[in-house]
């Protein structure tokens, strides 16, 4: 057991899987020699050589398209996109090719690959460095979309992603890359994709969150506990496919539902979850299932970003509204 940060957990999972499986290769912009702008791939080129961990030219379509070719021809590529905002030139490859390869070749070719990318706001960043674009991937048939919120889950989920037979978009909440540390087993372990985690058992309301928002809900819970409100907090962990069972069971128990996500609201995961609850837990509801999300706006630069990023105070406010409904 070592006490490590989320970014160190990512690094450890990569190192362990590269060690275990010689077909795992890691690449992207500044990934090799430097070890990544966030240090996610630090030490990997030194340990495994330039054939297995390497820098690419700046070309996201090149990176992601090549990952597909590698996966088809016997490798397990783990590509890094430096910031999720720069993924878009590679989106064509993801949507038009990676997500479709298994289906269109009727299983003859598959795309067992991982595309890692830091995402999300709250770090006072430049333009295109703060978006939460999970909806863009979750909307696409054929993709799995995973977001860890702790070092433990980051390691276990990334390990699962690398071993998964299908393409996994692995989004890392960079705001909490180094925000806290956690004890993480040294040996390999799996946190299964498609399985949410009940972070806190509660009775009055189910709150679902993921990524950096999980901690914000936890902070809000401290206030809410003081007011006698018991929150069942679920960390979704996998955005697609959604763990319907865990969430529906929870809502049947609590009768209230709030989803908190940093991504913009329109057509987002919040809507998906609420539709699911309406279908499967409608008769248990005591208040309308509700979403607290980013506004439908471009993420503001720093001097306006505080309005966009959801804080514990707003979460507590929304929860209380639903309790009092």
């Amino acid at each position: 057991m070592a006490t490590i940060s989320l970014i160190q957990a990512v690094n450890q999972a990569l190192e362990q899987q590269m060690e275990k499986d010689p077909t795992v290769v890691v690449f992207g912009e500044d990934v090799g020699f430097e070890g990544g702008v966030f240090r996610a791939t630090a030490g990997l080129q030194k340990k495994f050589g330039e054939m297995r961990c390497f820098d690419t030219p700046i070309a996201e379509a090149g990176i992601i398209g090549a990952a597909l070719g590698m996966a088809i021809n016997g490798l397990k590529p783990v590509a890094e996109i430096q910031f999720s905002g720069f993924m878009l030139p590679g989106y064509n490859q993801i949507v038009a090719h990676i997500a479709r390869m298994r289906n269109r070749s009727r299983g003859r070719y598959t795309a067992p690959l991982v595309i890692r990318m830091p995402y999300g706001g709250g770090i006072r960043a430049l333009e295109h460095h703060s978006e939460s674009q999970e909806t863009l991937f979750a909307h696409i048939p054929g993709l799995k979309v995973v977001i860890p919120s702790t070092p433990y889950d980051a390691k276990g989920l990334l390990t699962a992603a690398i071993q998964d037979p299908d393409p996994v978009i692995f989004m890392e909440p960079k705001r909490i890359y180094r925000a806290f540390k956690q004890e993480v087993p040294d040996e390999e372990y799996i946190v299964p994709i498609g399985k949410a985690k009940i972070v806190n058992n509660g009775t009055d309301i189910t709150v679902v969150a993921w990524g950096a928002m999980v901690r914000e809900v936890q902070k809000a819970m401290k206030t809410l506990e003081g007011e006698g409100i018991s929150v069942e907090l679920i960390d979704l962990r996998t955005i697609s496919p959604i763990d319907q069972e865990t969430i529906v069971e929870s809502v049947k128990k609590t009768g209230r539902f709030l989803v908190v996500h940093e991504a913009v609201r329109a057509f987002g995961p919040g809507a998906e979850l609420i539709a699911m609850i309406n279908k499967h837990a409608f008769l248990s509801l005591e208040a309308p299932p509700t979403r607290l999300t980013g506004f439908d706006i471009i993420v503001p630069l720093d001097k306006g970003e505080h309005h966009y990023i959801i804080d514990p105070k707003r979460i507590a406010y929304e929860v209380k509204k639903l309790i009092q409904y």
Partner: peptide, 26 residues
């Protein structure tokens, strides 16, 4: 000393005219 961006500004430049769903959020 220029301060923060006025709240209205983060909403009003998304479109020529703010659509109803955005008015509601605002």
């Amino acid at each position: 000393n220029s301060g923060l961006v006025p709240l209205e500004d983060i909403f009003k430049y998304q479109y020529a005219e703010m659509p109803p769903h955005l008015v509601e959020q605002y």
